[in-house]
Design a protein around this nucleic acid. Structure first.
Lengths: 140, 140, 140, 140
DNA sequence: TTTT
DNA sequence: TTTT
């Protein structure tokens, strides 16, 4: 009856934009969310959770146009767990955050004084490659 | 740098309690979280997300002792995505919410006027059966 | 850039519905949110925070029609701090949660087996009595 | 029974550190949280909410030592509404977020290429000046 | 009283 | 001013 996720992290790669058969834009990217904890031996450990994000409609296009790998964002959305069959026909479970809001928390690499930056070329496929999106996931 | 999940839903089955090799208690259960939306045809649709929850230490024991299938709770925690190999050796991704807080929002079935209720017998195994828990997941 | 509040508590009184000069419905009520802590002497203490809630438009009417004193709800919204002059001309600061979502977590008193219940008569005025609402507070 | 606030914004002034009679450190600062909305005339409007933050113990010292006016942070905590008598003996209501976590989201001004920066001199008093803090507010 |  |  309530399903709310708030994440702050950096894009692990550029957003990937596609369209449903009905022409609805969907963007996907993975967010790297850092975490620190103290382990059994009392040592300070850094870990990173990689969390898949799905963004729909106008926000999908805004994210694709203005965000890239490494950018810091706050994502607000809903956790969704899904079952699907992968390309080998194996049943898999996937979990993503369906975002209804993405806030940009830093400036693009260019503006931060980087040299090359923002190539917008995605190497490899992100988590969305084997999934057929359901428009009923749209969070509004 | 921030990873926060808040869920309200009902337990899909009784919590299952186990212990790590070091004797740390871990409870697991699946939460059924309802959701309504309007589909493309303008119809009101009810859907349910089933989200796996992991609870550690004293709270694990409290949940196991006081909660059962059908109970309404609010869960606060962190979203965690993990890779593991299942019993057929297939690499799988799992996602759970590691709870640091669980609030009981209704009264046990008995107190609500049910007849049998609260047998505490779990039929089958829940999502935790193939997973070896890492104590570093403990959220504090 | 992000302002998110999630509360679970019970209505301290029935919602009060009014309308802006433009005819936009606004409902207000106070939420009693329990909290436990251990004080300096190691004793377990119960405290309650009373938090003012503002609800706009259709949700305002839904809340007024279906909620009453004592009902358990989850409120999601935005924290808003406002300055205003009270009836004695003293400048005061007020804080409310402007809700964009209210979930009903229990059943009305009648359905719970109460005898009298749900009179819907509000004794006294709630916090909204001295405030002129600004439609720009509407959270969408 | 649940009281959770998550804010992202910039410090409106340097944190102010004080100590309770028992020597417990408390830091206070005001957070400027931006917000955009579209008004009745269809114009895009920028508004800022100024929200008071209270931080206790070790985190109070960390914030005071490492944060200053203008810094971007994520604050997680609990909304607290309090009554107190101001210096003229007028009963006032105050609302703050008692933070249990503060994440630093940008780098100090110096590291961002500013010239003077970080003077750490607070002009005027912040909201805490008339309040006597209650150690029972400590969020754990 | 206010931040970018 | 307050809810269970």
């Amino acid at each position: 009856m309530l399903n709310r996720v708030i994440l702050i992290g950096r894009l692990a790669q550029d957003p990937e934009l596609r369209y449903t058969p009905n022409g609805v834009p969907v963007a996907t990217f993975t967010l790297a969310v850092g975490r620190q904890y103290t382990n059994r031996q009392g040592e300070r450990v850094e870990a990173t959770d990689f969390i898949d994000i799905v963004v729909w409609q106008k926000l999908a296009e805004t994210c694709t146009n203005h965000l890239g790998k490494g950018r810091l964002v706050a994502v607000e959305g809903r956790l969704q767990v899904r079952s699907y069959d992968d390309s080998q026909g194996i049943r898999r479970k996937a979990a993503e955050v369906v975002a209804n809001d993405v806030r940009f928390l830093d400036w693009p690499k260019e503006a931060r004084g980087s040299s090359t930056g923002g190539s917008k070329t995605t190497e490899g496929e992100n988590f969305a490659s084997e999934i057929s999106f359901n428009e009923d996931e749209i969070p509004f």
